[in-house]
Design a protein around this nucleic acid. Structure first.
Lengths: 188, 188
DNA sequence: CGAGCGATGTCAGTTGCTGTCATCAAACGT
DNA sequence: ACGTTTGATGACAGCAACTGACATCGCTCG
């Protein structure tokens, strides 16, 4: 038998989500999270750089999925169409994850520090998408603009998806937002 | 004669900019900023909510300028054209501010905490722009999408403006980026 | 001229976060 | 089979960000 229980990171993440939800982010000490996970405060900081990061372990997976889908689009696809395909893939990914996303979003949006962290994760994602577009031969500033546009569509579609009482799929809102963006920029 | 020197906030901001530039953000203590400004640490926190905020006092002015310009566009202008007009106004605003913007951006981009703060200021600006578009009768999700697109254009144009060895004006890059965005979203 | 206000100072306390060293089970090499 | 190394954790000390409570004292207003 092992000296310690396995899955330390998972336990820390679950304890953090619970406590941030119960008492709020500011009112939760790292010591309390560690205690609920059966670990010490020092060990928390070995797994996560700070108190916010514990809610963002999934962001690398999202980034890999997103950039992979973008790179996997047909070479002949225009940048915006490759982005549309990648957005569809990401929409699929969240198909069964709405309950968790709802709980998590409630915690994140209720605290400015967590919102800041979320925004920098999206900025990192945007930079990765721009790099993937460079690999497709897209030049600046088009690559960065299409990347930012994709992130904007994703952000707004994601919000609307979580708010939707009819529980339509994320893919629906992603497509809706992309159509709206194209219409809005084409006008005038 | 007054009991204290006037312009405490200005002195704190200048001291902070200097020290963040000289030693870096992390290596600068709030006590050191306060000391250079001839004040105490406690007084620093009476003027600024935290160590980062001292670099962002100008963000409300930018937000007011941006939303005011958007609201001031002709009623007949399409949302994207109103945004284009507002972006031009903002471009003008920075005409003589490149030297300061360069110094400040060097400090902000060199520290993740400051980048996070900058991103949440831009998110707040985006929300204000979306609200101004609502006032113009634009509905969701178009309002938020055009707002986000405007911020994306501003961000990318701003970067390119600061990097430009030819020192062309911000307005030039704003227009360039907007044209590129329209071309990219129209394709396909 | 006295009362209250407002900006600052002083001080103690909590908490996020880091450096350093110790511990000990498991994997590894011989 | 046995010593060694490794890797995750604990224990502890310490710094700096931030907060609450109370004191100070010029200035303004009546």
């Amino acid at each position: 038998m092992s000296r310690w229980q396995p899955n330390a990171r998972e336990r820390l993440e679950q304890a953090a989500m619970e406590l941030y939800g119960e008492r709020g982010f500011e009112q939760t000490t790292v010591a309390a999270i560690a205690e609920r996970a059966g670990l010490t405060e020092r060990t928390f900081f070995r797994h996560y750089a700070d108190k916010r990061e514990v809610l963002f372990s999934g962001s690398v997976a999202l980034q890999d999925l997103f950039t992979g889908a973008l790179a996997g689009a047909p070479d002949t696809a225009a940048p915006i169409d490759a982005m549309a395909a990648a957005l569809d893939t990401v929409g699929e990914f969240f198909r069964d994850r709405r309950p968790y996303a709802l709980r998590r979003q409630a915690v994140v949006t209720s605290n400015p520090n967590l919102r800041e962290r979320e925004l920098i994760k999206l900025a990192s994602l945007s930079a990765a998408l721009a790099a993937a577009l460079h690999d497709r031969g897209v030049r600046e500033p088009a690559a960065s603009l299409v990347a930012e546009a994709g992130i904007a569509v994703f952000k707004i579609a994601f919000e609307r998806w979580l708010d939707d009482p009819d529980e339509r799929e994320l893919t629906y809102f992603v497509r809706e937002s992309l159509v709206e963006l194209r219409a809005a920029t084409a006008a005038g």
